[in-house]
């Protein structure tokens, strides 16, 4: 027993060795190894930058969109299939809506990614929430893009 405890002295850290003590579960540990796995990419910086830039652009795109759709020319009551068809006949509105779709979806998805990183503690939960997020984002962006480019005003 005495030799054991002497032999273990250098190995034991601050965790209590007393058998009667309740185990203190460290919520997380920052170790030398966690600092070691470095990604060497600028992804986080680019994501941060994207949020700022897309946010500025979206202010104009979304406010313009809302004013056109809901305020000018009789407001929301004017919106119909014909109204949308008329707008999408012009490449300008196609680009506008496409840009708005992509920026808003990526901006929102990146924000959600941040929320997941902040609040999901278990690695598995994090992983599956992000899979779900990516799937939803890709689906929405792909479907929206498809509709904008293949929109047929003469559909019956």
């Amino acid at each position: 027993m005495a030799t054991d405890s002497i032999g273990n002295v250098e190995l034991t850290d601050s965790t209590p060795t007393d058998a009667t003590a309740f185990l203190i579960e460290p919520p997380r540990k920052r170790t030398k190894t966690t600092a070691g796995r470095r990604s060497r990419t600028n992804f986080e910086m680019l994501a941060w930058l994207f949020m700022r830039l897309s946010g500025i652009v979206l202010v104009f795109l979304v406010l313009g969109h809302l004013i056109i759709q809901l305020v000018l020319d009789g407001g929301v009551s004017k919106i119909s299939f014909a109204f949308v068809a008329g707008r999408w006949a012009s490449p300008f509105w196609q680009v506008w809506d496409l840009l708005m779709l992509w920026l808003a979806m990526l901006h929102g998805a990146n924000g959600m990614r941040t929320v997941i990183n902040d609040y999901a503690e278990r690695p598995n939960t994090r992983f599956w929430l992000k899979v779900l997020l990516v799937a939803a984002t890709v689906f929405t962006v792909a479907l929206g893009t498809l509709v904008i480019f293949t929109f047929d005003p003469n559909i019956s």
Binding site: S14, I24, E25, K29, R30
Partner: peptide
Amino acid sequence: MTVLKDLVVDMDPFFQAYRD
């Protein structure tokens, strides 16, 4: 940070980040 007893916490992760 992990509370060890009363107001004493385990500062190791804090100082590890500092060393990093």
